[in-house]
């Protein structure tokens, strides 16, 4: 089991930064800290601007200047917003279903030696299969593009959540198991009041990985045949060589992904307030 439990241990952004005081040298003041946090952004923006203005990139450069991109982004906002809503109608059902089934099945399997013997060999084989390979097959077999895309998002998000839920159930300390037995908790009470909350740190790690996968798979799936959505927006304007809009679409998708991950991190912090 232990090899199986060696999971993708991706951290949710902002959860494991080293303490500033641990670094040698003088601790910066509030202005210094504020500058540090935006320094990379300023450097990237400047590099982008310098490259787009001074490099000989032709009349329709693949790298339009920040100003032109910003204008394209502003003009495309209504279309991007509609694309966001379209993408969310794929991402939310797929991710929600993966979360629900991943948690329920992961905790059930993680607390039963028999179910582990039955399911974990299969999970070991099926889990690592890159979900992108399912996309053409899902489009061919399911009646609509939307259903296919939801299915692919579900598959991509399910395995990390399932695996982490199994690991979380395994990581439950013996003293809590003993305590639950002493209290005479029923199996359902044990799952709901002990295993689930104890496994939440692992589950949130799985959800963060699953959400990141969901965005990747969503945009990839939209390249295949969607008539709306963020991935489709980028692909559509790339086909027409409208690079300002294409770059605007990439930046906007990055922002939406960042906001979604930040929202999940916020829910994680609130839910795990008891971790000290």
């Amino acid at each position: 089991m232990s090899d199986y439990i060696a999971l993708v241990n991706l951290q949710i952004p902002g959860t494991s930064l080293p303490a500033a005081s641990a670094e040698p040298g003088l601790a910066p003041g509030w202005l210094g800290r504020a500058l540090e946090s935006v320094a990379v952004w300023i450097a990237l923006l400047l590099s982008w601007w310098v490259a787009s203005v001074y490099l000989p990139l032709g009349d329709n450069p693949l790298l339009p200047s920040p100003l032109i991109t910003a204008r394209a982004l502003w003009e495309s906002l209504p279309e991007l917003w509609a694309g966001t809503l379209s993408s969310l109608t794929i991402l939310l059902p797929g991710f929600a279903l993966a979360t629900l089934l991943g948690i329920v099945s992961g905790l059930t399997v993680g607390t039963s030696a028999r179910l582990q013997r039955i399911f974990l060999p299969f999970a070991k084989v099926a889990g690592p299969v890159p979900p992108t390979v399912y996309i053409p097959y899902a489009i061919a077999i399911l009646p609509t593009f939307k259903l296919s895309a939801i299915f692919v998002v579900f598959i991509g998000a399910f395995w990390p959540i399932f695996q982490n839920a199994v690991a979380g159930a395994h990581a439950l300390e013996q003293r809590y198991r003993d305590n639950a037995r002493i209290l005479g908790l029923t199996r359902l009470e044990y799952q709901r009041r002990v295993v689930f909350p104890a496994a939440l740190p692992h589950i949130f790690t799985g959800m963060a990985v699953g959400l990141a996968f969901s965005f990747i798979l969503l945009t990839v799936a939209e390249l295949f045949g969607a008539n709306a959505g963020l991935g489709r927006f980028v692909q559509y304007y790339a086909d027409f060589a409208d690079y300002p809009k294409m770059v605007a679409g990439i930046l906007y998708t990055g922002l939406v992904t960042f906001l979604a991950m930040t929202l999940l991190d916020s829910v994680r912090r609130r839910s795990l307030f008891w971790l000290k």
Binding site: R175, Y176, D178, N179, R181, I182, L183, G184, R193, V194, P197, A198, L200, W274, L275, K276
Partner: peptide, 17 residues
């Protein structure tokens, strides 16, 4: 285990959540 026999553990074992 039975409710007839309560246990106090060294490490408290209160559910932290």
């Amino acid at each position: 285990p039975s409710l007839e026999r309560g246990v106090v553990f060294q490490d408290y074992a209160l559910f932290p959540w």
